[in-house]
């Protein structure tokens, strides 16, 4: 396999926690501009895979490359974020004691050192960007409210908004519709498809309706490696996938 023209390239990646192999010889390739849905039962290693890509967890072995040439295992979280990989956590994680607007301001692309932050004044361009994102995530009328007061679904959207503010090349989105109503789920699928028009995206999700809505290539993980890969119809017809989902 060639790494050129890939945005993310994982080959033979393994990681163990106290002898337990959470990721086992995992290989996964994402092309530039592609959106991929990753499914798999609880404990399949989906979140751990994101931890590896974002520098939170070091793999025991294997290659992890970003943009065809950057070895991600040699960088830490902040560096990887600055290269252009953004991440939404499984449990929505926003800054609860800040307002929606402040959350976005902290995420907005720009210098990340202390002194510029100390003397930072919001520019008109930044204000416009924040307004745009607030429109996209539909929290415009709540901009001055504390993030703590948002509902679970709204926090998910705020976190996606923070990802947009960061303007990464690759977005890793972990279970974005957990705890959402059907209508919200649809909205989220629409939003992600919109984002995928000019970003590479990996979405982890259990919700099959949502995955169908996305209409992209699907990878099913199981026990830390790829079980099946292809269209949703192909994957859900795969006997091994059915077995994994229906019980052991």
């Amino acid at each position: 396999m060639s790494k050129s023209n890939t945005i993310l390239y994982l080959d033979g990646v393994s990681v163990s926690f106290d002898g337990f192999r959470a990721i086992n010889n995992l290989s996964l390739v994402l092309d530039k501009g592609e959106m991929r849905a990753i499914i798999g039962p609880n404990g399949a290693g989906k979140t751990t895979m994101m931890d590896i890509v974002t520098g939170k967890t070091r793999p025991d072995e294997g290659e992890v490359f970003f943009d065809g040439q950057v070895d991600l295992t040699k960088h830490d979280e902040a560096e990887i974020a600055m290269m252009g990989i953004g991440r939404k956590f499984q449990k929505p994680t926003v800054f609860e004691s800040h307002t929606i607007e402040e959350n976005l301001m902290l995420a907005l692309k720009g210098p990340r050192s202390i002194f510029p932050a100390l003397f930072h004044r919001r520019s008109a361009a930044e204000a416009r960007q924040i307004d745009d994102i607030l429109g996209i995530i539909r929290l415009g009328d709540k901009r001055d409210q504390l993030a703590a007061n948002l509902s679970h679904g709204q926090k998910q959207w705020l976190e996606i908004g923070m990802l947009l503010a960061q303007d990464p090349k690759l977005l890793l989105v972990d279970e974005p519709v957990a705890g959402m109503t059907d209508a919200e789920t649809e909205e989220t699928a629409r939003l992600l498809k919109e984002i995928a028009r000019d970003h590479s995206v990996i979405v982890v999700e259990h919700d099959m309706h949502f995955v169908r809505e996305l209409g992209v290539k699907v990878t099913c993980l199981h026990e830390g490696s790829v079980l099946s890969e292809g269209t949703l119809d192909f994957v859900s017809a795969d006997e091994r996938v059915v077995e994994v989902y229906l019980g052991r």
């Binding site: 974002t54 939170k56 830490d76 979280e77 902040a78 974020a81 600055m82 953004g86 991440r87 956590f89 994680t93 926003v94 800054f95 609860e96 004691s97 800040h98 402040e102 301001m105 902290l106 995420a107 990340r112 050192s113 202390i114 932050a117 100390l118 003397f119 930072h120 923070m162 960061q166």
Partner: peptide, 30 residues
């Protein structure tokens, strides 16, 4: 300090340190 963007970041590190790292901030420098 507390009212500046850095101050917001300081509280953000207090409340969700790893979030700030994944946004590209160096929490240790903060």
């Amino acid at each position: 300090i507390v009212g500046s963007k850095y101050g917001k970041l300081l509280m953000a590190v207090r409340d969700a340190e790893s979030r700030t790292r994944f946004l590209g901030w160096r929490a240790e420098n903060v």
